[in-house]
């Protein structure tokens, strides 16, 4: 485990931003931290990056109690609210940020040149940040976040404002980093990206953890026993002991929900016995998006302020 959080709490005057959250992040994994706006994600990340101290609870980083002063050199954090010095030259700025992460000037220079070459940014070196588009700034920020080869990379909405081409470039680099042994914590609202990238997810809402598991596990946990069956001829009946037809598509494809106590094999048997030929049969798993909406729905979209007594 690269990171373990134990019963972290952070209360503000008007709300419990983080209310007793525990989870752990495996080394080399890509970890998704999800949650609606105001769920407490940013506060959580700020505690992991040493910007805030937790009111109570413990953070274990790389096997030892987290020491913000020393350990932040092994963390790369790209916050959601991010920016650069507008009037500073890009090369100079990247060097400056790298040195603040503890890299020597010569090392930083060499590594930056490599990254700039890899991401086709060489011509930017002597330009000013104000000359860059938002997407270009994002790319530069990504480079400065991961340049010092941090053990833990924390990316808050890393794709916002990027075009599909650059999104893919960054996505590939994220996979490369994970392959190279870095752990990535990835915070976003965009569920399709999470499904594509993350191994493990945690969902927080109103300062509490409401879901924790691998993407596969979570989908299994929330599956509704729905199967899609493609047949040469659709049956007329809608219900029987084994399943219920919940949807029909024009090309004789049914969506069935298996009743409790039966398995997918029972469904297949039923159709085989009825003499129809089966073209396709596959399970419909819920998308993370559906799970997210299901879990978060019913709680007010905008978080209400509450009085904290603690």
């Amino acid at each position: 485990m690269i990171l373990e959080l134990k019963h972290l709490k952070k209360y503000y005057a008007t709300q419990k931003a983080v209310d007793d959250i525990s989870f752990s992040v495996e080394r080399g994994s890509i970890f998704g931290l999800l949650g609606p706006n105001g769920a407490g994600k940013t506060t959580l990340l700020r505690m992991i990056t040493g910007i805030f101290y937790p009111d109570s609870g413990e953070i274990i980083f790389d096997g030892k109690t987290f020491n913000p002063l020393k350990d932040i050199e092994h963390i790369g954090y790209m916050p959601e609210e991010r920016g650069l010095y507008k009037k500073m030259k890009i090369g100079e700025q990247a060097l400056y940020l790298a040195q603040l992460k503890g890299l020597g000037k010569a090392d930083a220079n060499r590594m930056l040149k490599e990254w700039f070459e890899k991401l086709e940014m060489e011509s930017w070196w002597n330009k000013k940040v104000e000359d860059l588009s938002k997407g270009m700034q994002q790319k530069l920020q990504f480079v400065t976040t991961v340049l010092h080869r941090p053990k833990l990379v924390i990316l808050d909405e890393p794709f916002s404002g990027l075009d599909p081409v650059n999104s893919n470039v960054i996505k590939d680099e994220i996979f490369n980093l994970a392959k190279g042994g870095s752990t990535i914590i990835f915070s976003t609202h965009r569920m399709e990206q999470v499904e594509e990238i993350c191994d493990h997810i945690v969902l927080v809402n109103k300062g509490q953890k409401i879901l924790d598991g691998t993407v596969k596990e979570v989908k299994q946990q929330f599956k509704e026993n729905l199967f899609q069956v493609g047949l040469n001829e659709a049956p007329a009946e809608n219900t029987n002991a084994i399943f219920e037809v919940v949807g029909r598509q024009r090309d004789k494809t049914l969506v069935v929900k298996i009743n409790e106590g039966y398995t997918s094999n029972d469904v297949l048997n039923h159709f085989l016995q009825s003499g129809r030929s089966i073209h396709s049969f596959n399970e419909i798993l819920p998308s993370l998006n559906d799970i997210f909406i299901n879990l978060v729905e019913g709680t007010p979209t905008a978080r209400q302020f509450q009085t904290v007594t603690a």
Partner: peptide
């Protein structure tokens, strides 16, 4: 400037 440029949080993580 640091605050409105949103570089403050990047800085305080270092």
């Amino acid at each position: 400037e640091e605050k409105t440029n949103r570089i403050a949080e990047v800085m305080v993580s270092s």
